[in-house]
Design a protein around this nucleic acid. Sequence first.
DNA 1: CAAGTGACAATAA
DNA 2: TTTATTGCCACTT
Length: 110
Amino acid sequence: MADSDREGFFQRVYNMVKQVPEGMVATYGQIARLVGSPHRARYVGFALHVNPEPGAIPCHRIVFADGRLADGFAFGGPDVQRHLLEEEGVSFLPDGRVDLKECRWPAGTE
DNA sequence: CAAGTGACAATAA
DNA sequence: TTTATTGCCACTT
């Protein structure tokens, strides 16, 4: 496994996203920060865009820093993504945003 | 080798 | 408050 993270920044992002439990969401910036650099947020999303392991990589659990869903992609529409998150138990605000204050995965200590 | 690109984030107006 | 612009850094061509 140590060899796996040598594949690149992408593999590292995938590894993080896979660790996100159901019913929780992580932000691009948060993932970027966890992998070691807070400024690679753009590339975090790009990693999911490649999505080499569909099903194993819950892209729908990754949202904007505001809790907003991806506006231009969202594998079918933010509408679908919201549905998937609700299915997992993620809370949503009336604004259409994820309840980051409750469902944010890197909950403080991590 | 150099330039371009990209599911964002933060700051300015 | 929302919209526009800039910066960021790995990866592609």
